[in-house]
Design a protein around this nucleic acid. Structure first.
Lengths: 252, 252
DNA sequence: CAATTTGAGTAACCTATGCAAAGGCGCGCT
DNA sequence: AGCGCGCCTTTGCATAGGTTACTCAAATTG
């Protein structure tokens, strides 16, 4: 459903994120901003933005809320393979392939911009730097994807959840959604379980354990990390896969 | 170490794979072939081609042998996050980011081509279609990465191993390395364990179970699948993430 | 050809994680 | 206010999978 009232500031996270990857000219920013505002959409919690098997005809860029990229097995088992946070785009170049290999769901109410493929391509054609920024985003999300593989395959429950929390904090920070070491945690334990490859019950147990160890405070949909280094330690967290953000930012 | 004797046919898998993704002009093929033959290299089994933290200055394209993309935790736990098969490239655009977030090891003796970044970029600049083919490859490998996430997070041991075997067969087929439903399986059980997130012992148990069920025959480094549909069934295999190959091939 | 290494296969034991069931809390709806 | 429902939480129990340790065969080395 299109959005009637369009406050220009809704696109800010996108501009922030992309210009951290590549220095965007003010012209590029303006054109991008315009393209985004043109296609504003809302999704209710639980709604699929696009589903496995769908053809891809547009690029979606998230402005607010959390999305989940997920795949399902026939029997209903679900794995969230990545989160999508404000400022990130869903499938910047997915239209190069023939159809979606996974689905994207709104884990919270969400606002996003939909840019039609042709519109997007002409936008990039005139802005090589913008184009490169979008490609970097895609590569970054692959790097995150790889980190999730080792998280799922080799870390034990406590490490997995701790690692996920570290990552969320680090990914939310550059778009200004972290206050100190606190952020909103608007998703259900079921969602967290599906992201960490655990059962809801075991996720809950692990959460208790993290709380008991004083590593996380989680209440009223707010996550607070009293001692981030301690949590990173417990998570066997190595920032190299996200350092890619900052290094390129420094190059700016 | 550079390779002295260079038989032109070594690059065939690369040409085959890329032209399955996008129709390459004979000029593009020739230029690519030339660039590949220029930078032939060998790696011994167990040797790292590039390691986490290294800057990326070149693109590597595998011609023969198997590579493994992996990440390690401080305490030595290793996760192979993807395999790389002949004809596939390691990190076609990785140089857009600042450093490697993972390592790549030769799981068997391997022959590959190394193309310096500048050389690669000028090659692509003159061949938009070739460039698109390489991008498709990158996107395809992300799709595989996502499938690995659900494999590690939601499938049980038997399904995981079965799924891996199905995938290997389907990825080896387009480069002509599958004979009927048989292929070479040159890696150790340890490697398979690290790819499926299991311990070696449990991987071995699972292999026994697959054998006992008549789903796989594995001996003398050769994998044979008597009934591929049955194995896919046991694996809860859904081809949508690899169908991306064929559909785009059909478009050709 | 002995010495060594590497990989596959087993077994015993133990623990991390899954599963089923049930209760409590908070929130929106009527 | 009262109801229903989604979400969180807890408990008890079952089991998949990890760990350690050992054997055996085959490949590699000297």
């Amino acid at each position: 459903m299109p959005l009637s009232t369009a406050d220009r500031s809704v696109v800010e996270p996108v501009i922030r994120r992309l210009s951290a990857l590549r220095p965007l000219s003010s012209e590029a920013r303006a054109l991008l901003e315009y393209a985004l505002l043109e296609g504003l959409q809302r999704a209710g919690s639980g709604e699929d933005l696009i589903a496995e098997g769908d053809p891809v005809d547009a690029v979606r860029v998230l402005l607010s809320g959390w999305l989940g990229r997920y795949k399902m097995l026939e029997d209903g088992r679900r794995q969230i393979v990545n989160f999508i946070f404000p400022g990130e785009s869903c499938d910047a170049h997915a239209y190069l392939l023939s159809e979606m290999d996974h689905s994207i769901v709104a884990l919270t109410p969400a606002v996003y911009a939909e840019i039609k493929r042709a519109r997007f391509e002409s936008l990039l054609a005139n802005n090589p730097t913008l184009s490169e920024a979008f490609w970097c985003e895609t590569l970054l999300s692959s790097a995150i994807q790889r980190e999730w593989a080792i998280n799922l395959g080799r870390r034990v429950a406590l490490e997995r959840v701790a690692h996920l929390f570290c990552e969320i904090l680090e990914r939310l920070r550059p778009v200004g959604m972290v206050d100190g070491n606190s952020c909103l945690m608007p998703v259900t334990q079921m969602d967290l379980a599906d992201a960490t490859g655990l059962s809801v019950v075991h996720l809950n147990r692990t959460l208790q354990e993290l709380r008991a160890a004083g590593l996380v405070v989680l209440r009223e949909r707010t996550l607070t990390i009293p001692d981030l280094d301690a949590l990173k330690n417990a998570a066997l967290y190595s920032p190299s896969y996200l350092r890619l953000y900052r290094t390129t930012e420094a190059v700016r």
